[in-house]
Amino acid sequence: MSHRRAPFLITDFKTIAWLAGYLEGEGSFLRNSKRVAISLQTTDFDVAQRVAGLMNAKVHPVSQAAAHHKQAYAVHVTGKRAVYYMQLVQPYRGVRRRIRIDECLDAVAQNSQHRKRLGQASARISDSALLAAWLGRGEGVSLRAFSNSVGIGRSSVSRRLNILGCKVSRAAQHDSCSDASSSPPTQACYPALDEPSEVSLEWTAGLLEGEGSFDFIQGRTRVSLKMTDEDVVARFSRLVSTTVCYQAPTRVGWKASYIAAVHGNAAKDLMSRVAPLMGKRRLARISHCLTAAHEHRVALTLAANRVFEARYPQAAICARWASRLPGESLESVAKEFGISLESLRRRLTEWGVYEGTPSKSIRASVRVASPASLL
Score class of each variant (00 low, 15 high):
S182L: 15
E198C: 04
H68V: 12
V262M: 00
T78G: 00
A17E: 03
Q87W: 09
N265H: 10
A107N: 13
S28T: 12
I362H: 01
G165I: 13
L135T: 08
W134R: 12
Q41I: 15
G356N: 08
P191N: 06
A132I: 13
S237M: 07
V51L: 08
S257D: 04
I339Y: 10
E350C: 03
R306I: 06
S126W: 14
K167I: 06
A275E: 03
A145N: 08
A364I: 14
G153F: 02
M227F: 04
K34R: 12
R347G: 01
W321A: 10
G165A: 01
A129F: 08
V150P: 00
H76C: 05
H294V: 01
V77K: 11
A310E: 05
F29P: 00
P326Y: 09
L19G: 03
R144A: 00
K116S: 12
R222H: 00
Q71W: 10
S200K: 13
K58E: 04
R98T: 03
G138S: 15
V59W: 11
T204S: 06
V62H: 07
H68K: 14
E342Q: 15
A107H: 03
G25S: 12
R93A: 07
V262G: 01
V366W: 06
V157K: 03
Y73C: 05
C318V: 15
N56E: 07
S2V: 15
W203D: 02
S176P: 06
A319V: 13
H174P: 00
R4E: 10
F214M: 13
N32G: 11
N56D: 05
T250E: 14
V274G: 00
R220P: 02
A256D: 04
S183R: 14
G356T: 13
R273F: 08
M227N: 06
D12L: 15
K280C: 04
A180C: 15
G264I: 14
G153S: 11
C289N: 07
G119F: 06
K80G: 09
Y22P: 06
V108F: 10
S287Y: 09
G165N: 06
G151T: 13
R363A: 01
E355N: 12
V51N: 05
I339T: 03
P191W: 11
H69V: 01
D231Q: 07
Q64N: 02
H68A: 13
N111P: 01
L374M: 12
Y312H: 02
P191K: 02
H69M: 10
V59S: 00
I259P: 01
P358V: 12
N32R: 11
L283S: 02
Q49V: 10
Y246A: 07
S155W: 06
L302V: 14
A256T: 11
R273M: 11
S241P: 04
T221S: 07
D231G: 05
A188K: 04
G153W: 10
A299E: 09
R297A: 14
R115F: 14
E350W: 09
Y312C: 02
R297C: 13
